[in-house]
Design a protein around this nucleic acid. Structure first.
Length: 759
RNA sequence: GGGCGCAUAGCUCAGUUGGUAGAGUGUUUCAUUGACAUUGAAAAGGUCUCAGGUUCGAGUCCUGAUGCGCCCACCA
């Protein structure tokens, strides 16, 4: 006898276990010469190992619907799970954790720090796996991968070597977005902009007046620039002008540059190539020297004279006061608002800095990635909205800075020759007594440290890029050359360099997988990482295999609260998926995320909606209970599960509706319109089957009219099948319950055949 | 500065190729030993943002306006 209410807690764990043990989520590759049916494959967008489960992860439901649907169509189906070490994110979280204990990353050598982070992440990573199972995701856990496992890392290093051998890797002193708090450079994508009001200083500058918000970087000024043809300044073009500044007299060159806006300020700007992106470009074009005034610690360097050692903001005020004293300030615009680059992680103002970094040339990689989408080898869905975004970004792509100055990630496999370059390589390390040491290798050696000691306590090295042949020899490969002394780069790879090759590398882990499952069928992800991830996967996937990584890139939307507000901890409107699963069941939460949702629009989630969907699961359960009741005493031999041959008119009409529903739902899923598909089933089950058909045929059912019962059961099982991809637990529970299959998992609904074949 | 999206019931949103508006939730009334109160029956509630245009016919297509949101580039 069935319970009066569907108690999800009683069934979910058991059903989960049953699915897993029956191995139905692990596809079999057909062997021998058997005709190979095209498989359906999705690679899970790997969650950050350090992230606690949040509602965004529950959106993987969309993938599970696709996967379960295709599995029921009889296709070999693979949904491959994984976790991402998420370099900067994770190290950032860990450093906050360290700070609570009064420690910082500088207290540890890199190896120790790496191990500590590893331990720190493990618990959460394992918890994530359990939580994803609870949502009913039909992932093949036998193929689970972690981005830092040795096999994956070794493939990533090989890719870098290959890129290097193909001439697509270079090291350059380039201006990068540097966060002095996080201590690392960021790619352009990882920079946010905030509106800020700062004083705009008009400074007397030799014969000119220049407008700037930054007074502190004066020691890095090497030129002034104006728009070509600006009559006010044309006469000065090419001259060396003497300037009196707070640190004395210096000279700057006068150049003209089309990117200078003649309308801004006085139409002439000071050029500081060491600390401004545009100025760096100007310097490259005009062969101007680059002076580094701000260090990686966010303090001014010795070039700043008496201001050396000050933090940027201190120095800005200090220099301003000095300028006032020297009557160098013409006037100050206090109302000036502009956009300032900040670290997307910690909000610290980004300092553009010139630093040695590893770059990947992206133009040759982007070209085939653009072609592939243009030719439809990869379709972006919804197309209209996102293809344009994709092309815009790909067409204007910059070279990719893959260096990160953090320890949490695979180290770039580059070794610098130490012998003969001792004075060029800067090293920070902890000596045997745990004391921090900084300086060139030569200085360390002179102070009695050995190379081994430096390596044991290594924190970071900096090897500048020298012009011509003066740069230390670099070796890229599996390890250092045997002859001589070499020291490995301490920069690690940008996380996206790993995740960009994830579909290829994970499928390489098992022989035959790459051939069979690649290109994968669908990539489903939040559209905000279209550039971070989708673009990189396209480039590296094609580069490594010659084929696109996925045939469809499906963009889903962001989850927001009931009022359409973005969820955030500070607003306190976060919906915890696991709490919802505990309270209302996984099916209810899954259904909430797709029911009535249009493609790529925001998804409003409220507890009320989850409750409503839980009520639907219960409704379904009670229809089953009703069926169990009316079938009591009826020999199931007498009523086969087949389609009735000659139904009565009411029944015939109803069966027609069932067929129509089947068609509509199938079409909607094929078009990624899960909102419509789920709504149709809901509407039909509740308002057609329960409210109308059952109510109207209660008399016949009581008299055990065989045709009525047969049609009733036919419609009901059809609904269970159609709904299974959306609400796997309650449908599976009912299927087992009504078919008496609780002891025979082989006939579970998960493996049942979809009722409509699609061509 | 360039581009995109949205505007429909109190709230959150659907509305697939143009044919007199739908769901969830909330509200009101009634029903109750009945498969299900996590229920059923019924009701109220919308000039589909505004102004033009195409059409026999526009929530749906076109143009413009207003409001909101987002993305890209970035101003020294």
């Amino acid at each position: 006898m069935m319970q009066k209410i569907f108690e999800h807690n009683k069934f979910e764990a058991e059903i989960c276990k049953q699915w897993e043990e029956s191995g139905v989520f692990t596809p079999q590759i057909p062997s021998g010469k058997a005709p190979k049916r095209k498989p359906f494959t999705i690679i899970l967008p790997l969650p950050n190992a350090s992230d606690p489960m949040h509602i965004g992860h529950a959106l993987f439901t969309v993938q599970d619907i696709l996967v379960r649907y295709h599995r029921m169509l009889g296709e070999p189906t693979l949904w491959l799970p994984g976790s991402d070490h998420a370099g900067i994110e994770t190290q950032y979280i860990f450093e906050k954790h360290l700070a609570k204990q009064g420690k910082s990353r500088f207290d540890y050598d890199r190896e120790t720090l790496f191990k500590m982070i590893w331990e720190f992440v493990e618990e959460n990573r394992k918890l994530n796996i359990e939580q994803m199972k609870r949502l009913g995701f039909s992932l093949d856990w036998t193929r689970y991968h972690y981005s830092l496992e040795p096999e994956i890392v070794s493939m990533v290093l090989d890719t870098f070597k290959k890129l290097h051998d193909d001439g697509l890797v270079y090291r350059g002193e380039r201006i990068v977005n540097f966060c002095t708090h996080c201590g690392t450079a960021f790619s352009d994508l990882e920079v946010d902009y905030v509106e800020r009001r700062d004083p705009l200083y008009y400074i007397k500058y030799g014969p000119f007046i220049i407008a700037t918000t930054r007074t502190e970087d004066f020691a890095g000024n090497v030129a002034v620039a104006f728009h070509p043809g600006d009559k006010r300044y044309e006469g000065y073009l090419g001259q060396d002008i003497e300037i009196t500044g707070v640190n004395g007299i210096f000279r700057v060159k006068v150049v003209s540059e089309s990117k200078i806006d003649p309308e801004f300020g006085t139409g002439i700007e000071k050029v500081t190539p060491g600390h401004d992106v545009l100025d760096f470009e100007i310097a490259q074009r005009h062969g101007l020297p680059i002076k580094k005034v701000i260090g990686t610690d966010g303090r001014l360097t010795e070039l700043a004279g008496k201001f050396a050692g000050m933090k940027v903001n201190e120095a800005r005020n200090g220099v301003y006061r000095a300028m006032v004293e020297m009557k160098l300030i013409d006037h100050v615009d206090e109302e000036y608002t502009h956009r300032v680059a900040v670290c997307y992680r910690c909000g610290t103002t980004i300092e553009p800095m010139v630093m040695p970094q590893w770059f990947i040339k992206t133009k040759p990689l982007a070209k085939p990635a653009i072609e592939a989408v243009r030719k439809g080898k990869t379709r972006i869905v919804p197309k209209k909205r996102f293809e344009k975004m994709y092309f815009d970004w790909m067409d204007n792509i910059h070279d990719w800075n893959v260096s990160r100055q953090i320890v949490w990630g695979p180290r770039i496999p580059a070794w610098y020759k130490v012998d003969g370059n001792e004075q060029k390589i800067w090293v920070s390390f902890l000596d045997k007594g745990g004391r921090p040491k900084q300086g060139t290798i030569r200085e360390h050696l002179e102070n009695g440290s050995t190379l081994k000691e430096m390596d044991d306590g290594l924190q970071r090295i900096i090897v500048p890029v020298y012009q011509g042949t003066n740069s230390p020899e670099v070796h890229i490969g599996d390890g250092p050359p045997t002859a001589g002394n070499w020291i490995q780069e301490t920069d690690t790879f940008d996380t996206w360099f790993l995740s960009g090759q994830w579909p290829v590398n994970t499928l390489r882990c098992r022989p035959g997988d790459l051939d069979y499952f690649y290109p994968t069928s669908v990539l489903d992800t939040l559209w905000d990482i279209l550039f971070f991830w989708v673009g990189r996967m396209m480039m590296l996937g094609i580069y490594l295999t010659g084929k696109v990584p996925f045939e469809v890139a499906h963009m889903h939307a962001r989850v927001v609260d009931a009022k359409g507000q973005k969820m955030s901890k500070s607003k306190g409107n976060v919906v915890d998926p696991i709490e919802m699963v505990d309270k209302y069941g996984a099916d209810a939460l899954r259904m909430t995320l797709v029911f009535g949702v249009a493609p790529a629009s925001d998804i409003a989630v409220s507890e009320e909606k989850v409750r409503g969907m839980r009520n639907f699961a219960n409704k379904l359960w009670n229809i089953g209970r009703y069926i169990e009741m009316v079938f009591e005493g009826v020999d199931s031999q007498v009523i086969p599960f087949s389609f009735p041959e000659r139904p009565l008119l009411t029944e015939r009409k109803f069966i027609g509706k069932v067929e129509k529903l089947t068609k509509e739902v199938t079409e909607a899923i094929e078009k990624y319109k899960f909102g419509i598909a789920s709504e149709r089933i809901y509407e039909f089950a509740w308002h057609e089957l329960a409210d109308k058909y059952i109510e109207e045929t209660k008399g016949e059912a009581r008299q055990k009219n065989l045709q009525t019962l047969q049609v009733l059961r036919h419609a009901y099982f059809r609904i269970l099948k159609l709904l299974h991809p959306f609400m796997p637990f309650v449908t599976e529970a009912l299927w087992m319950e009504l078919k008496g299959l609780r002891k025979n998992p082989r006939e579970q609904l998960t493996c049942a055949k979809w009722p409509l074949m699609v061509g």
